[in-house]
Design a protein around this nucleic acid. Structure first.
Lengths: 147, 147
DNA sequence: CGATATTATCATGAAGTTGTCGTGAATTTA
DNA sequence: TAAATTCACGACAACTTCATGATAATATCG
């Protein structure tokens, strides 16, 4: 569903969001916490900084922090940097170059329901929602990888 | 969503299903009809044969045919040869090794709805449904790539 | 049988993704 | 200023996916 890179980014951001005001987190620490190769994570974090999702500080006590409140950060903004969530799911399953509501292929409407739900999920769920344990409050959500 | 290979396979199978009793279709013809590289399609068709979805005949007037009635062929059986539809969507978005209904991560239940819908789509839609223009009979379904 | 048509299979290459390494730039501390 | 710490960034290696080409195996037809 998500590429490895996008999943790494999501894990890292969620992990950062779990540290309330605790100052910057070093890439190395983050890499250990989310179990992603140190150097590769560095690149991903850098991408997130350039996108304005994280901010970085260099030198001693430097590291990465969220640049946006977790509740104002939909997952698509993280994941969408690396994967094409909307467009990709919306491509015609049968490869027709044009496939829209007005000019549908035989499976268009049924597939669209799936594509829409996926896009809604990533568009409407925020990193903050993830921290809160999702919307359903299912009693006993297990801790994530960053506790 | 689907890998290129899986999409190619799906297009080819749908295309074959559109030829009612017309005998075998050559890989070259199929490649032209569904716009997939000839040699690469050959491999994919071969995989479909080994999976029992197509049958092939060699020599003059040879080619590929469906080995299964289109209405008894769910899309997952085609696509699942190349992509891991069920397992892949079901992997924890946050990378937790164990993530289930009993031991959910914060987004488990919300994501599960998406994953289930995707899996239902591929599991319940058959190639025959595709030919019939989907289940909704949406008035004026446009022709697929094989008419 | 011999010629031709077609799939089957293997070797190879191109391109994208994932991961590593080394060096430079910025910041802090002494 | 000098040293230490940390991110920034480019080069490159490994692996997977996508694609091509050549050859072998099999079937048909005269």
């Amino acid at each position: 569903m998500l590429s490895g890179t996008a999943e790494y980014a999501l894990r890292a951001v969620v992990c950062l969001a779990r540290r309330p005001g605790g100052g910057p987190v070093r890439a190395s620490d983050l890499a250990g916490a989310v179990d992603v190769p140190r150097n590769y994570l560095g690149k991903i974090l850098h991408d997130l900084v350039r996108a304005g999702i994280l901010k970085s500080t260099r030198g001693k006590h430097g590291g990465f922090q969220l640049a946006v409140p977790a509740h104002q950060l939909p997952l698509i903004r993280v994941v969408g940097l690396f994967d094409e969530i909307g467009r990709e799911q919306r491509r015609c399953l049968l490869g027709r170059p044009e496939c829209s509501d007005g000019d549908p292929c035989p499976v268009h409407s049924r597939w669209k329901e799936c594509a829409d739900q996926v896009q809604r999920f990533f568009g409407e769920t925020t990193v903050g929602d993830v921290l809160d344990g999702g919307r359903l409050g299912s009693g006993d959500p297990a801790p994530g990888p960053c506790d």
